[in-house]
């Protein structure tokens, strides 16, 4: 059953909960997450790719011991793949069998084939079902990929946590799921939907937090290397690039460097592995060679000064 005691009771408790599951959050994020849990409002997370938006939902589900239900959005997502679908093959079969048995009574038959037995449940409907571990975490991922029509449909679901199946009636959630919506902002989500949610812009972390994330996620990286990696990534984010690296790229890069048994950054190593960090050829070209060397020299100097 749903146990409210399981939810964190304060902002500090939320912060600690996320930390215990290996997610290094800042206080603003913990505040908004706490409020969303407490007020039962969906949480709308917007931000550049690779800053850990999806991860929040996963960590939340894992640390609260709830089921995670994920709806990955894409263009043309419709009710049949997001909410429910009838199992037509089985329904056809039922009709044929009824025919053979010679008991074709249309009313009975109709009530029979449109029963829950023949209903295939998709993520949104699953999220409304009661769960023994408590209301599930519903992750609606990359909402900006789908179209306005689906957004409009979501309004109904998010406002009342209910879904109407014409043949069955309205299905209501006894305990509303914890909803987390993410968007990469490849288009603006309509204000009507945002109004029903608590909004938070997930930004790139600062150096201290990024170092903490790196330590938590790639513990194998030597201390000095980690510091250099974070300093380099922080510096590269200040450059005029088409796509600056996110936290995910930092972690990938750190893992790659650990695999290469690196203990410190040097210009050739950076140039060789820049493809892990930057994903546009123009950006890589801009950063390779002398530019990388200059940045590294500056980083080494400042790290030495700090020691």
């Amino acid at each position: 059953m749903f146990q409210p005691a399981q939810l964190p009771a304060s902002i500090d408790a939320t912060l600690a909960l996320l930390k215990s599951a290996g997610y290094v959050a800042d206080r603003p994020l913990a505040t908004v997450l706490f409020l969303s849990l407490k007020m039962g409002r969906p949480l709308f997370l917007e931000g550049e790719a690779g800053v850990g938006k999806t991860e929040i939902a996963k960590v939340l589900a894992a640390s609260l011991g709830r089921k995670l239900i994920r709806l990955q959005c894409y263009e043309g997502l419709d009710v049949a793949s997001a909410v429910y679908e009838w199992n037509y093959a089985a329904q056809m079969m039922a009709i044929r069998l009824a025919e053979v048995a010679g008991t074709v009574d249309r009313e009975v038959l109709e009530a029979d084939v449109f029963s829950e037995r023949y209903l295939t449940r998709r993520p949104l409907l699953q999220a409304l079902e009661p769960d023994t571990a408590g209301a599930p975490v519903l992750l609606i991922d990359e909402l900006d990929r789908t179209d306005e029509a689906f957004e409009a449909f979501l309004l109904e679901v998010l406002a009342d946590f209910q879904v109407t199946v014409p043949e069955l009636g309205t299905i209501r959630a006894e305990h509303p799921p914890l909803v987390i919506i993410t968007s990469n902002r490849t288009r603006e989500i309509h204000d009507a939907l945002k109004r029903r949610c608590l909004y938070h812009w997930v930004d790139y972390p600062n150096a201290t937090r990024e170092l903490a994330i790196l330590k938590a996620k790639v513990p194998a990286a030597p201390a000095r290397l980690s510091k250099e990696i974070v300093a380099f990534v922080q510096a590269i984010r200040k450059e005029e690039l088409f796509k600056v690296p996110g936290v995910a790229e930092t972690l990938d890069w750190a893992s790659a460097l650990v695999e290469l048994d690196a203990v410190a950054l040097d210009p050739t190593l950076v140039s060789d592995t820049l493809g892990v960090l930057l994903k546009y050829q123009d950006d890589i070209q801009k950063m390779q060679g002398t530019k990388a060397k200059e940045m590294l020299d500056a980083i080494h100097a400042s790290l030495r000064a700090a020691e």
Binding site: I11, L35, K194, Y199, W201
Partner: peptide, 22 residues
Amino acid sequence: AAAIGTREDFYWTLHAVFVKRH
């Protein structure tokens, strides 16, 4: 709901509700 303790928490609580665009 948030049982605010500090100015920063107060800031982010109001931010969560009032701000809908980056």
